[in-house]
Amino acid sequence: MATVTIRNLEKRFGDVRAVDGIDLSVEEREFLVLLGPSGCGKTTLLRMIAGLERQTRGDILIGGQVVNDLPPRARKIAMVFQSYALYPHMTVRDNIAFPLKAQGVEKASIPERVERAAAMFGIELFLNRKPRELSGGERQRVALARAVVREPTLFLLDEPLSNLDAKLRTLARDELKQFQRRIGTTTIYVTHDQIEAMGLGDRIVVMCGGKVRQVGSPQEVYDNPADTFVAGFLGSPPMNLLRGDDCTVGFRPERFLPLAVHESREELVPLWFRVNRVEDLGSDRLLYGTLHDTFPNERVIVNLPFTVHFPVVAGGVYEFAIKEKDIKFFDKATGRRTEPRRFWAKR
């Protein structure tokens, strides 16, 4: 098990700064998720930790040791790729055994270790098959087995679930999390899927434009986004961001509920909500509309879970409310979150 420390890490491709001065530390046994849109530098960061990419500047420490100049094979890291990168000409058995052979593990112990890794992922029956004879989910398990077989100190996972269909992905996510809990290997996981990030991560690192925007637990990042980018990136539908005169006001679509539905009236901010359109998604209802008298020109989305029995029709105006602590304020110029203020009283 290992800690990872990253100091002022930078990677340039020509004039482009793919990773732009990142400081980060990953704790032992932690499941850290790098989250961001494509091109934000998360995969480049991961590849630099792996040693597949050389940083332009900065240090990478694994287990307290500077690994800047070490090749990947000397870093004791295992990596699972988005494409799984299984060796197509080898059987599953040979795929899993490959890292052991490459590292000169004693020959006699290899079959047993391969069997053990295969059993961990329930792929014992496929050991003699070639990767092309396996389904996407099975391939993903083989890739994981190949990664764990040599007991690495650090796991790097590059969007390993994105090639699975939606149904399988949820299952695989759960398995992955349980598995990581069990073996307790420090894990860095790259994804652009905020649901995966929320579900898997002990902490989430939100990245954009090669920089870290926020680091925190899923709840922290979701509830208290550091800036408008994080607020808009996490959550589906994302946080409503309404541009006021002196600041941007944000609130989550599922926190803005009909006044009658709120359990207590304490610290509630009531607002008139004009509904323009209703989308019934089965488990939720999405209401599209405007805040009638406060922000008539900004679109607002509200997410009503199906448990809220409140009749809504398009064109209607209803009294909704939000708790004061659920309203976030962002600086209009920088987008950074600012101190809460008595915004509504003014209006």
Binding site: A50, L52, A78, F81, F98
Partner: peptide, 14 residues
């Protein structure tokens, strides 16, 4: 695929 070469490097192949 480049991933295959990367995987071989990660797996420690000389």
């Amino acid at each position: 695929p480049k991933d295959i070469h990367d995987a071989a490097q990660m797996d420690g192949a000389g």
